[in-house]
Amino acid sequence: MTVTAVVLAVALLGLSPTAAGPNIKKVALIIAQGGLGDRSYNDSGYAGLTKAAQDFGVQIKAIESRDPVGQGEQLLRQAAKAGFDLVITLEFTHFEPLARVAPDFPNTKFSILNIAVEKPNVVSVIFKEHEGSFLAGALAAMVTKDTKIPGINPRKIIGVIGGTKSVGIDKFIVGYEEGAKFIDKETKVLVSYSNSFGDPAKGKELTLAQFQQGADIVYQVAGGTGEGVIAAAKETGRYAIGVDSDQDYIAPGHVLTSMLKRVDLAVYDLVKRLVQGSLKGGAVITLGLKEGGVGLSEMKFTRHIIPKAYVDRVEQLRKDIIAGKFKVTDITQK
């Protein structure tokens, strides 16, 4: 009844909810806290959506709210009511609202990233961050032994800064450690937690402490805190490893590589499946090295200082993991 009221109200006002032909699919993307313009997670997801719109001719809408956490159910429900075929949310806290809303709209497909919501019309996307981190660890373990590279000491020590001590973050760290030990069992990996994703000063302080303990490469898995990790590397002439998006440009030559998490690809892939009719509700899509959902950056600014043999070795490891020759531990699957 209330649905009718809304439609009626809108119709009376001479407006129609995003008119489209019967065959044109409509996709809504709910933007997470932080909003568009974050040069990171949200922007990446939106880039994937706009690319999908160009490639598949779907109608798209980005939904921004000042309070995506508090308005979770409302946003999901209204997007479904407005007649979108697929509603993707980038907001992590929507996992509970989504589980409540999805059953009311069996003909709408929903999607959420980084967490599995088990409902027949929800498609969850999980990234295999451990696989990408494995490659980062392997590269770091090779570079940390090579004193011919500027800023590298002879000690086999590398570091990592996590945003919080949580399974979600340790997934990266364990993969990184495994990659490092795979190259050289004696590699020591220093681990610190910043207890914040938005504290560059803390990130810098922790990184400098790790450098003092002999590390020369520090992987940041701490969001905005990572800016401090990169700043510390730049100041001391050592190296950081970026995360999520390609952060190599932030301090050219001092970000060894970045472990990319392709949110854009995830969104693009969802729309592609929708258009092709292969989007299966109730499924969990995992995006790893094989799917190109995670991986290392192209190392635009460091490629000339890293010996080609190391890059080739990393590439070989990537192929081996894809071929299933060995598996990287996923601590969330325990």
């Binding site: 909810p17 939904i63 000042r66 308005q71 409302q74």
Partner: peptide, 19 residues
Amino acid sequence: LRSGGATLELFVDIPKDLI
């Protein structure tokens, strides 16, 4: 404004910047 603004985007081409 907050609640309507979030819904507004779904129906008309008015960005939430109006809000």
